[in-house]
């Protein structure tokens, strides 16, 4: 098993922490993991992306050209990464603010209305967990149980009371995926 993923969006959407939780979840399943962020001034208000690799074997490059799964959360990221999905791979995008939707027909494309779902949940901070829930519904690369364990590991203890809310957001994200 090897899954090469990139998550891209605006700084502040929780892109890096979503990747981190995914990486920790992989760790809980005894997988090899790498988490490679874009870092630097572009994180402040600009675009941010993170490459996460989960594998049963030693991982070579933490930096990739093409991905099994691409999660994009704004138009810029969609424009940049649509062509980087491997043929037959998965592209997940949030419809909010997208005026040029993806056009490729050799990949599986999923539209999820995650931003709208945050209005429903009345909690904009749970956005990345909604997206992660959708991702896991489409590609169950780690179990929900291990995601919750990964989440607990990546959160400081003072935030553990927020775990149930995050679980709710993950479930909400899963329910957004329509075949």
């Amino acid at each position: 098993m090897k899954e090469e993923i990139i998550i891209a969006g605006f700084g502040g959407q929780g892109v890096l922490s979503m990747g981190k939780i995914l990486a920790y979840s992989g760790l809980m399943e005894e997988k090899e993991v790498t988490w490679m962020p874009s870092y630097g001034p572009e994180q402040r208000g600009g675009t941010a992306n993170v490459t996460v690799i989960l594998s049963d074997e030693r991982i070579s490059s933490p930096i990739l050209n093409t991905y099994d799964t691409v999660v994009v959360l704004n138009q810029q990221s969609l424009d940049r990464f649509e062509s980087k999905v491997k043929p037959g791979g998965v592209l997940i995008y949030d419809s909010y603010g997208i005026h040029n939707p993806p056009t490729r027909d050799d990949i599986r494309v999923y539209r999820i209305d995650a931003t709208e779902a945050t209005f429903e949940l009345k909690n904009s901070k749970s956005y990345n967990m909604i997206v992660l829930g959708a991702l896991l519904k489409i590609k169950p690369m780690v179990t929900l149980e291990n995601v919750l364990r990964g989440l607990k590991k990546s959160l400081p203890e003072r935030h553990w009371h927020l775990l149930p809310m995050n679980e709710k957001a993950l479930q909400k994200g899963m329910s957004l995926v329509k075949d």
Partner: peptide, 9 residues
């Protein structure tokens, strides 16, 4: 910087 910034097991 890559090895400094990336996370692994």
């Amino acid at each position: 910087g890559v090895v400094g910034q990336m996370m692994e097991k």
